[in-house]
């Protein structure tokens, strides 16, 4: 388990460096839901190339690193009702709140944005209560 924390810390620093590069390089806040959502609903089509290239980078680097890394398993559930419900909630929620773990969490909290801090508290609390409810009380996940 301690080794996981070290990988977490190193990976986290890479994530933060990516956010720093995007901010100082292009003046943009690195928020995954905003980058994807702007492509999906058309609001970000004027910067589509930048968004698509960013997402290609996100998807590609794990492929390049895979041969040098320990076994990869997402352990994702095979309950499709849960997957679809969760996807809808994540898609709608992040776009209504205007951010997710990267935008509100990493980028917002690191500049002490009150919206980022409130959003992060809300989604961690809701996620925690959700896991208690759906795993320990209802037993569906």
């Amino acid at each position: 388990m301690p080794i996981d924390w070290i990988w977490g810390l190193i990976g986290g620093m890479l994530i933060g460096t990516g956010g720093a590069v995007y901010l100082l390089g292009n003046g943009r806040i690195m928020g995954a839901s905003g980058i994807i959502g702007g492509l999906v609903d058309g609001s970000g089509w004027s910067t589509a190339a930048e968004r698509i290239i960013f997402l290609i980078g996100v998807a590609l680097l794990p492929v390049l690193l895979m041969p040098f890394y320990r076994a990869v398993d997402t352990h994702i559930t095979d309950n499709y009702a849960v997957l679809v419900a969760a996807g809808l909630l994540v898609g709608i929620g992040t776009r209504i709140a205007n951010g997710c773990t990267s935008g509100h969490g990493v980028c917002g909290m690191s500049r002490l944005s009150i919206r980022g801090i409130v959003a992060t508290c809300c989604y961690i609390l809701a996620g925690g209560l959700g896991v208690v409810l759906f795993r320990h009380i209802l037993g569906v996940i």
Binding site: G93, T94, S102, A126, F134
Partner: peptide
């Protein structure tokens, strides 16, 4: 929005990134 996102995040363990 954040509460909805949090519930979805917890259900599967995935966020957009």
């Amino acid at each position: 929005g954040s509460v909805m996102f949090g519930i979805g995040w917890g259900l599967v363990g995935l966020c957009p990134g």
